Amino acid sequence: MSTLTEVSMYEDDRGNRIISPTTFTQNVRVDFKGSNNTLIVDPTAKIASLRARFDCDNGVLELGGKSPHRGALRADARVGQDSSIRIGKNVTTTKLCILVAVEGTSLTLGDDVMIASDVGIRTDDAHPIFDVESGRRINWSQDVHIGNHVWIANRAIIRPGTSIGNGSVVGMNSLAKGKFPNNCIIAGTPARVVRRNVAWERPHLSNSKPFYKPDASTVKKSGYWNPTEDEARPVATTLKRWARIKRRARHHRRQLAGLLRN
């Protein structure tokens, strides 16, 4: 295993490489255990803390750049066999964020994602679970996609197979799994859409003037003020709607049968 405490241009005899025109030396560590792994860092990236672990072969970790006025990235990223983690531009974290992709999956964070403290995003469950009778695996790893301008609040967990649309908010302590639309608030355990047609902006309520922000005139609007596309509702929500429709249909049939008997 090769352990590096500097992020700069690098290549070893096992095909592992770092593509980083800028050198980063503060609070960084990169572990290459396998071969043919690649770390790509935008020259304008702003890294407060990075732990990058390439456990297997053919992994890719890509870090996007930053605008000068935005915060920094703090990440503990684990990349498994044939897997990738791609982080867009202007992604910020309050504290260390756990990012994991294994078993040929991809984890993607779009541009301008804001991540609060103690957040975990992963494509796997870390350990396999099997059906006792058949011996088959029941918790397969799945891709995760977080859209642009998504706010993930404190202690939220993003589970394998999750997709979150642009401009959405994931509430505190939420456990998100499934497909969620754009411009909505997702909250709960398990998480569900609790409000649609919302937009959020980065200015802090106490750190950015004006200190009362009653309407949209108090912030500079980003390009993510859009109505929620209802067709992107999670599968679980759609199934619940169909179940309600079926229950109503059975009730009406019983009522009709009673009227016919009378």
Results as ranks from 00 to 15, higher is better:
Ser84Cys: 00
Leu61Ile: 12
His149Ser: 00
Thr228Ala: 08
Asp118Pro: 03
Gly223Gln: 07
Gly65His: 02
Lys179Phe: 11
Asn182Leu: 03
Val169Ser: 01
Arg122Gln: 12
Asp111Asn: 10
Met114Ser: 08
Leu256Asn: 09
Val28Lys: 05
Ile138Gly: 07
Asn148Met: 07
Ala72Glu: 15
Ser117Tyr: 07
Ser206Val: 13
Ser222Met: 00
Tyr10Ala: 11
Tyr224Arg: 07
Ala176Thr: 14
Asp230Asn: 09
Leu39Tyr: 09
Met9Ser: 11
Gly161Cys: 09
Thr92Ala: 00
His251Arg: 13
Thr218Gly: 02
Leu4His: 02
Gly161His: 01
Val100Glu: 09
Ser49Pro: 10
Val60Tyr: 04
Thr237Ser: 13
Gly223His: 08
Ala199Gly: 14
Phe180Gln: 09
Thr105Arg: 15
Ile152Met: 04
Thr108Tyr: 14
Ser84Arg: 04
Gly178Trp: 06
Lys46Ile: 05
Ile19Gln: 09
Ser67Trp: 07
Arg78His: 01
Ser83Tyr: 00
Ser208Glu: 10
Cys56Pro: 01
Ile98Cys: 07
Glu231Asn: 14
Gly88Asp: 02
Ile47Thr: 08
Ser35Pro: 05
Leu39Trp: 06
Glu201Gly: 04
Lys33Met: 10
Asn183His: 05
Ala236Trp: 01
Leu205Trp: 09
Cys184Val: 07
Leu50Ala: 10
Ala116Met: 12
Ile85Asp: 00
Asp42Ile: 01
Val7Cys: 04
Ala236Glu: 11
Met1Ser: 08
Val219Leu: 10
Pro203Lys: 08
His149Tyr: 05
Gly147Arg: 00
Thr93Lys: 03
Gly110Val: 01
Leu107Lys: 13
Ala216Trp: 04
Gly171Arg: 06
Thr94Cys: 07
Ser206Trp: 10
Glu11Ile: 03
Glu133Leu: 12
Arg74Val: 06
Asn197Lys: 12
Arg53Gln: 15
Leu256His: 10
Phe211Asp: 08
Asp13Ala: 13
Cys97Ser: 05
Thr237Leu: 13
Thr108Met: 14
Gly147Asn: 08
Asp143Asn: 03
Asn139Gly: 00
Ala52Arg: 07
Cys97Pro: 01
Leu96Asp: 14
Asn16Pro: 01
Met1Gln: 07
Arg51Val: 06
Pro160Arg: 09
Asp118Val: 03
Glu229Cys: 15
Thr218Ala: 09
Glu11Cys: 09
Thr38Phe: 05
Ser49Leu: 13
Glu231Met: 13
Tyr224Lys: 08
Gly65Val: 03
Asp118Ser: 06
Ala176Glu: 12
Ile40Asp: 03
Ser141Cys: 11
Pro214Val: 08
Ile87Ser: 01
Gly223Pro: 00
Ala52Met: 09
Leu109Tyr: 15
Arg29Pro: 00
Arg122Met: 13
Trp140Arg: 14
Arg14Pro: 06
Leu260Met: 15
Trp140Val: 09
Ser217Trp: 07
Val102Ile: 13
Gly165Met: 09
Asp111Arg: 03
Lys179Tyr: 14
